[in-house]
Design a protein around this nucleic acid. Structure first.
Length: 486
RNA sequence: UCCUGAGUAGCUCAGCCGGUUAGAGCAUCUGACUGUUAAUCAGAGGGUCGCUGGUUCGAGCCCAGCCUCAGGAGCCA
């Protein structure tokens, strides 16, 4: 009953439905925002249900001039009329307006979005209005599909969506700089006798910060529910100024009991393919638009910087090919023997085993050598986190990074160290306070078992699927150094 | 945080070797036209040249500091 009421309450037809042509001959009411008003006669109207506009035809000779003047770019209007097959070229259907109502005016002198190309920088500064452009409409519909598809994929496999805390008490994970959480009066912070900040007087009675990862709490869930995932905001206070970092971003962190590293990689690869396929199926028009947008952007670039595949080809290629799986050690061999290394083209030359891979090395492997997504495994333990499972060689850990062309690391994960003695020994070596993580160590004390998990950077995924170049353009309101507008 | 580049009209950009009244296209406004698709034609309005200081007879242009943005690097997802 309530559902039926809800459906009939919305007294208008969405443009996506109108453009199918099935309403021809029937009277409809359509509501949306004016994208263009040409020749005092043609309104291009968009309501966000699709990237395409419906054409409204105005009988301007019999319409109040005062009303015509209010049909401006950006204005919200409601139109009633009978859908007909279009009399002109360029669209299949159109609506001769019987009545037009202005719902919200838009002062053309002040409205910043014009029916022309705007730079992404300009639109970023107008993030509150950029949804009204074709590009951002497409991006955020694709983003929505990807988010939903992730839930669908994991839910279909019996994973439990677990909400791990946003405010955490421990900074012991070493996953990066954190934002502090406090309700202290910052102009009058309580101090101890020795002059240090007295966290005992703070809201939580201790030092707290915004989460940098839900993994450790996620592991606690997996140690009872078997397969869990988190999908929530994550915060890093690093002063990162790049096209692939945000201070606030969304991360998916599946954590699975009884999974080893291979199971972990299998799941990540299947999930990435599933969600990319979902976008291709559900957002065909949006991706075609983004494909075109990227193609035009690429035309501006010199030949050698253009990508070989179009966006759609790249996504399709990703679906129909297995990701390459090699170990860190094999990767070092490839890089050391590469022409780029021998000709000293790398800024950081590969000399031996043990160093972390630089961006240029990852890009070489993914974009030049293999030309497809690469899963790198078994990194030296010294460049990875304490919780990763130590391999029998004594040198490496069961880590995996998935590298995507143009994006770099999109997934970082590992099989976890489930052996208490090995874990504690590693924490001691790295100076990680065991007492603060007593609850984490308890999982290894009571019914420990092999398990694994990974973190997928959601915006990096959206970046890849939409073909956009800057991560700040695939999240509605980006947070980055010196910027928290909107 | 480091390196490189940029900041001129609402937007995108030009502006020579430092020279007197800073330009164009689009947008906006006025008028014309009316089956358009980034409509077209004519005209008009619109500027703290990022900020502060300095050099100079004179600074959009040169110098210093700062702010912001972009691209690359690091950190990572």
């Amino acid at each position: 009953m309530a559902l039926i009421q809800f459906i009939t309450m919305s007294q208008r037809t969405k443009i996506k439905a109108l453009l199918t042509g099935e309403h021809v001959g029937t009277e409809v009411t359509v509501k949306g925002w004016v994208r263009a008003f040409r020749q005092n006669r043609f309104i291009a109207l968009n309501d966000g249900s699709t990237n395409n506009n419906i054409q409204i035809v105005v009988d301007f000779e019999n319409t109040d001039p005062a009303l015509l003047k209010r049909i401006t770019v950006g204005a919200a209007i409601s139109v009633t009329g009978t859908v007909i097959a279009s009399l002109g070229q360029g669209q299949t259907v159109e609506i001769p307006a019987a009545t037009i109502e202005i719902l919200g005016d838009s002062d053309p002198e002040k409205y910043p979005i014009q029916p022309k190309k705007h730079s992404l920088e300009f639109l970023r500064e107008n993030a509150h209005l950029r949804f009204r452009t074709n590009t951002f409409g497409a991006i955020f519909r694709v983003r929505n599909t990807l988010a939903f598809a992730i839930h669908q994929f994991l839910q279909d496999r019996g994973f439990v969506y677990l909400h791990t805390p946003i405010i955490t008490g421990s900074d012991a994970e070493g996953a990066g700089e954190t934002f502090h959480v406090t309700n202290f009066d910052l102009n009058n912070i309580p101090k101890t006798d020795t002059g240090e900040i007295d966290h005992k007087q703070d809201f939580f009675g201790r030092s707290t910060n915004l989460t940098v990862s839900g993994q450790l709490e996620g592991e606690l869930g997996a140690m009872a529910l078997s397969d869990i995932y988190t999908f929530g905001p994550t915060f890093r206070a690093e002063n990162s100024n790049t096209t692939r970092h945000l201070a606030e971003f969304w991360m998916i962190e599946p954590e699975m009991a009884f999974y080893d590293l291979k199971d972990n990689a299998d799941l990540a690869e299947a999930m990435l393919k599933y969600v990319i396929n979902a976008a291709l199926e559900k957002n065909k028009e949006d991706l075609e638009f983004l494909n075109q947008r990227l193609a035009e952007e690429e035309k501006q670039k010199p030949q050698n910087e253009r990508s070989e595949l179009s966006l759609l080809d790249k996504l399709q290629f990703c679906l129909s090919n297995d990701f390459v799986r090699i170990s860190y050690t094999e990767a070092i061999d490839i890089l050391r023997d590469s022409p780029a290394n021998k000709k000293k083209k790398f800024q950081y030359l590969i000399e031996g085993w043990g160093a972390d891979l630089q961006s240029e090395h990852e890009r070489y492997l993914v974009e030049k050598h293999f030309k497809k997504p690469v899963i790198l495994t078994d990194y030296p333990k010294d460049i990875k986190s304490f919780y990763m499972r130590q391999n029998d060689d004594g040198k490496t850990v069961a880590a995996m990074d998935i590298l995507f062309p143009g994006i770099g690391e999109i997934v970082g994960g590992s099989q976890r160290e489930e052996r208490l003695d090995r874990l504690e020994q590693r924490m001691d070596e790295l100076g990680i306070p065991k007492d603060e993580l007593w609850w984490f160590l308890d999982t290894r004390r009571f019914g420990t078992c092999p398990h694994a998990g990974f973190g997928l950077g959601f915006e990096r995924l959206v970046l890849f699927v939409t073909g956009m170049g800057n991560i700040r353009d695939v999240i509605p309101f980006p947070r980055f150094p010196k910027n928290a507008e909107f």
